[in-house]
Amino acid sequence: MTIPEIIGLACIAAGIPFFLSGTIGMLRFPDIFTRLHALTKADNVGLGFLIIGLCLQTDDWFIVIKLVLIWVLVLTASSASCHLVARRALQKGIRPWTRE
C-alpha cells in the first residue's frame, strides 16, 4: 500500500464521523432549522473528506476532476435546497426552537 492510499484511507475515515453526527443530529435535533444545520455538516465536510480520500486512491486525473465536480455540485444543491426548506418553514410561521 502506497503512502497516498494510506492518507486517502485516513481521509475517508475522518469523513465518517461527520456523516454519523449529521445523521444523529437529523434524527435527534428538536426542530427543522437545527436538523438542517446537522445535515449540511455531512454534505460539506463529510463528503469533502470522502472526495479527497477517493481522489488520492486514483491515478486518473479525469476521475479526480469528476469527483471534485460532484462535491461542488452537491455543495451548491444542498445549500440552496436547505435555504429553500428553511425559507418555506419561516414563511409558514414555524418558529426556531429555543430553550425555555
Binding site: L73, T76, A77, S79, A80, H83, L84, R87
Partner: peptide
C-alpha cells in the same frame, strides 16, 4: 428566492 435563482443559473449550463 434569490438563492434559488442563483443556484439555477449556476447549475443550468452544467
Amino acid at each position: 428566492s434569490p438563492v434559488q435563482k442563483a443556484a439555477v443559473r449556476l447549475l443550468l449550463p452544467l
